[in-house]
């Protein structure tokens, strides 16, 4: 089953003619994703990696309807592109760009909510239902099917952890990158709810980091309603307060979003917390 996307999901790539857009279209197709169209204003009629390119999302949808979109446009144009995708009827959009402004993201999320559209990101590597469909830019070979659902705020750290799982013979059902920004469309709770109802998922790994209160909220949800074991790792134990650690969301401000607070809340909710990323496979094997 997997969550959000599967082998039937038809995908549209916005910004398909750019460097990143065309490269990752090829990678997604190689993974098995059904990429049905691409959009690049003014480039309609071109073909990229065998995929027809249209000037607008509406035009692409008229030619062949898509279910989900992935957006590679530069940050200043992302709001318009996301609005277009939502208006044209896509049901899920993955916002890849880094540095989309907070107010733009809030507006995108508000419009998406009104239209019932799922927003993944921004500043995310995307999401993948292993062996079925990849909408994002994560390296293909680490994402093999299995019983572990993964939700992560960061990209490379997530590959590190999924790579560790793969090396220990543990595959993944769906891996969702929430994105590193302060405001993101999906949060831990949204995805935990989906995993709770997914027969393919036996346990969930939550990869968090300092800043914000997403992990604390997730802990509250897990304590109250989660029906599957959860293992967590939180990055940023040694980060000093007031310093932004790369991600816009990863900053400890006025004692909020601290490592200790997050770990405490997760442990209290019955989550097995790994001290190091390398400890996650063993913790999972004990609960699966």
């Amino acid at each position: 089953m997997a969550i959000y996307i599967d082998e039937n999901t038809r995908v549209l790539v916005q910004g398909i003619t750019g460097n990143q857009g065309s490269f990752h279209t090829a990678q997604m197709i190689a993974y098995g994703t059904r990429v049905v169209g691409g959009v690049s204003p003014g480039k309609g009629g071109q073909v990229v990696e065998g995929v027809p390119v249209y000037d607008t999302v509406f035009a692409a949808m008229e030619a062949e309807p898509a279910d989900a979109g992935i957006l590679f446009t530069p940050a200043p144009y992302a709001r318009d592109a996301a609005f277009e995708a939502i208006a044209a009827g896509l049901k899920l959009i993955a916002l890849i760009p880094e540095h989309i402004s907070l107010h733009d993201t809030m507006e995108i999320c508000a419009y998406a909510r009104r239209k019932g559209v799922v927003v993944v990101g921004p500043n995310t590597f995307g999401l993948v239902s292993s062996g079925r469909c990849k909408i994002g830019f994560m390296p293909n070979r680490y994402f093999v099917p299995g019983p572990v659902g993964v939700i992560s705020r960061s990209g490379t750290l997530c590959y590190e952890i999924v790579g560790n799982l793969t090396n220990h013979g543990l595959g993944t059902s769906t891996v969702v990158g929430l994105g590193g920004d302060r405001v993101t469309g999906l949060n831990f709770i949204d995805v935990l709810q989906e995993f709770a109802g997914d027969p393919d998922t036996g346990a969930v790994v939550l990869v968090g980091e300092i800043g914000g209160s997403a992990e604390e909220e997730a802990a509250r949800y897990i304590a109250a309603s989660m029906n599957k074991p959860v293992v967590a790792y939180v990055a940023g134990k040694s980060a000093p307060p007031g310093k932004r650690m790369g991600h816009a969301g990863a900053i400890i401000e006025r004692d909020r979003g601290t490592f200790a607070g997050k770990i405490g809340a997760l442990r209290e909710a019955g989550v097995k917390v790994a001290e190091l990323p390398s400890q996650i496979p063993a913790l999972l094997k004990a609960v699966l």
Binding site: S152, R153, S154, G155, T156, L157, C158, E160, G180, V207, E209, I210, Y233, A235, G236, K237, S238, A239, M245, G246, H247, A250, E275, L276, P277
Partner: peptide
């Protein structure tokens, strides 16, 4: 030096560890 904010943070944590 690392690549990605999350893994860089995790690396610093591991150095401390």
């Amino acid at each position: 030096i690392a690549n990605g904010a999350g893994i860089t943070m995790a690396t610093l944590d591991m150095v401390h560890h």
